[in-house]
Design a protein around this nucleic acid. Structure first.
Lengths: 206, 206
DNA sequence: TGTACATCAGTGAACGCGCGTTCACTGATGTAC
DNA sequence: TGTACATCAGTGAACGCGCGTTCACTGATGTAC
């Protein structure tokens, strides 16, 4: 029995729901810890109250992921802004990417594992107003930051890439492999300079 | 009500259970489709019959993963055997790795996502006789094939790597990123030569 | 050769649980006349 | 200025489900004497 939101601000509960789901996810519970009832408990509302804001459980996770992609892109942009030199900018963006995954490993895993499934499920069911294209679009924006940084490198002669768009995908895959595996196999004896060993060759830095 | 196994061959049911779990996993259900009851239904036995062979649900998944790692290593070794030239061998092993993930995407995902969690859970609970070290060891053997191939490349002057062990990890991460993301985002417009764009630079092939 | 008995491989019924979702509702808040 | 009423934000009880796991058991098969 919580204090009610004033009129016209019922949408505030929506944000609280997303934040609660995010918190549950980050607390090492993994995706399946984000149940509708757990979210409701966390917010301090009755479970059915969620249905005023989300059509189903999946839609909550999707909202978490959309917010997470926006956060990630923002952090990548910010990192890109801190470096003047193109090669340094590529490394800064890569570092920000890895940093995000390191700070929010569970969220990272759901972003790149749960989502696409969710989107596919929605395609099938057609329940919510979010399509696979929507979600793919979020990933594309992140990829765009990498592509731009790589292109600048090439133009400045700091990278030998002949196809920045394709090599940005390759670089992203390397970053993803490292980010994902680090979030999952923490005990693995990672070489100290593993990030550079992945980033520099894939970006074809001189 | 199935035909009983003859005396002394009760262990045969164990293999059937693992195979059924494998099949459930591969049928696009994802890890959570492998419930104890679903496995029992698939084998054609009563659910409690499983407890004669596995202490709990998690142990079934672990058995699936152990078998999968053995399969993968075998396929990598076979691929390594088909190529005489060191650089070609690296590419063949990488291709076999990606091929495995492509043929069994769900299994691949569980191998590199579910396991470590499972192992960590077992560390905490101490339930079964499988430790995180066991599972990590399986991954190490796969990595060993890559390391050997890369080392041969370096010795033959086909790779400029100065640290084959560390660069094998980097190469593995690139392969993992591609394998994982391909299994998860099938709709993504992957560049045609994406595998080469990941493998060649990471292996530092000339 | 016969028979009591241990073992093995597996069964069927039941447990308590948390889940997603539905339904009819409540009671405060603003609005129209 | 007063009052009937619509709306909004949320509640509480209940549903059916599949799950992991436990328990006491069954009935065929081999073994010891």
């Amino acid at each position: 029995v919580r204090e009610r939101n004033p009129r016209g601000e019922g949408a505030r509960l929506r944000e609280e729901i997303v934040s609660a789901a995010e918190a549950l996810l980050d607390e090492a519970g993994g995706e399946e810890a984000v149940t509708l009832r757990a979210v409701a408990r966390r917010v301090g509302i009755a479970a059915p109250s969620i249905y005023a804001h989300f059509p189903d459980r999946q839609a909550i996770l999707l909202a978490v992921v959309r917010r997470a992609f926006a956060d990630l892109e923002e952090q990548l942009q910010a990192a890109a802004g801190t470096a003047d030199e193109p090669a340094a900018r590529v490394r800064a963006v890569a570092g920000a990417y890895l940093g995000y995954a390191e700070r929010s490993p569970q969220r990272y895993r759901v972003m790149f594992a749960g989502v696409w499934d969710a989107a596919a499920a929605l395609d099938g069911g057609g329940a919510a107003g979010v399509t696979a294209q929507d979600v793919a679009g979020l990933g594309q924006e992140v990829l765009g930051v990498l592509t731009a940084a790589l292109q600048a490198c090439r133009d400045a002669g700091a990278s030998t890439t002949t196809d920045p768009a394709a090599d940005a995908v390759a670089l992203w895959l390397g970053l993803h492999g490292l980010a994902h595996q680090r979030s999952v196999a923490r005990a693995f004896p990672w070489p100290a300079d593993i990030a550079a060993r992945v980033v520099d060759p894939l970006a074809r830095l001189r």
